[in-house]
């Protein structure tokens, strides 16, 4: 049986499933991965009513996020995922991914967004100048082209994931199969859909337990992940699905362009 730090999908030998989950769906998703991997390892139980509790007598070494989860139970599944998403351990996971070059730092994303705003406002100023001043239309048009070029050039830098991060998520999606719960959850989230079934259904989780899971609203940064704070959460929509080998939806809809390419947008129940 795979441990939490075993790369279960062959996506990236150096990334743990929790890290893969973080890339695909944010800190909540990473927590879902921690929970499901512990259940798979026989260290946690999820009762029909959603109460998650520890199984005694399994002295093992766990990842920091798994340790947080084990320390936090008994607790309802939904609350546990939210707590995990907000935990210091999830933040450390994120920091680790930033340092490894998979996730952009919140500061750099913010800075690029500000630069783009300044460009845009400058262009608006030029438009007004041309309307009420003596600026020529050609200058405004040139400025517009410049703005478009600047927007295009900076586009990759406002996404929470780096190229390596997006590539990792794409490869994760390509290798996901329903018989492997951990990568399945990492990619889709418990509230994600595989075909006509929710992932929680595929895993045999009771509907009452799953009802406690929450989708994170777009723009909800409560997870504490500044650069991975927006998105559809543990999304079940089929807004993206291009790169997946399964017919279901993607977990991340940050860019909407492909399941693999979005990344970090979902909250995985947060």
């Amino acid at each position: 049986m795979a441990t939490s730090w075993t790369s279960t999908s062959g996506v990236s030998a150096e990334l743990w499933p929790e890290q893969q989950g973080f890339l695909a769906g944010g800190p909540g998703r990473a927590t879902e991965v921690a929970v499901v991997s512990l259940v798979e390892a026989g260290a946690l139980r999820i009762a029909r009513n959603g109460l998650v509790s520890a199984v005694q007598g399994l002295p093992r070494s766990w990842t920091p996020l798994q340790t947080f989860v084990l320390r936090s139970v008994p607790r309802p599944l939904g609350d546990l995922v939210v707590a995990g998403a907000r935990s210091v351990e999830a933040q450390s996971l994120r920091q680790n991914l930033v340092e490894s070059g998979y996730v952009r730092s919140a500061g750099s994303v913010r800075a690029v967004r500000w630069v783009r705003r300044v460009f845009f406002l400058s262009w608006i100023g030029l438009v007004l100048w041309s309307l009420f001043g003596d600026l020529t239309f050609g200058t405004v048009l040139s400025a517009f082209v410049g703005l478009m070029v600047a927007t295009g050039v900076t586009s990759p830098y406002v996404r929470p994931l780096t190229r390596a991060g997006r590539s990792t998520v794409r490869r994760l999606g390509a290798g996901v199969v329903t018989s492997q719960p951990v990568p399945l959850v990492a990619y889709y989230g418990l509230l994600g859909k595989v075909g006509k079934q929710f992932v929680w259904q595929v895993l045999g989780i009771d509907p009452v337990a799953a009802a406690g899971l929450r989708r994170r609203r777009k723009g909800d940064g409560s997870s504490g992940s500044a650069s991975c704070g927006s998105g559809c959460g543990s999304c079940s929509s089929s807004s993206c699905g291009g790169s997946s080998s399964d017919s279901g939806s993607s977990s991340s809809s940050d860019s909407g362009s492909s399941c693999g390419g979005g990344g970090c947008g979902g909250g995985g129940g947060d």
Partner: peptide, 8 residues
């Protein structure tokens, strides 16, 4: 017990 319902 609720915690072990599925186990039971």
């Amino acid at each position: 017990r609720p915690e072990i319902d599925l186990t039971v």
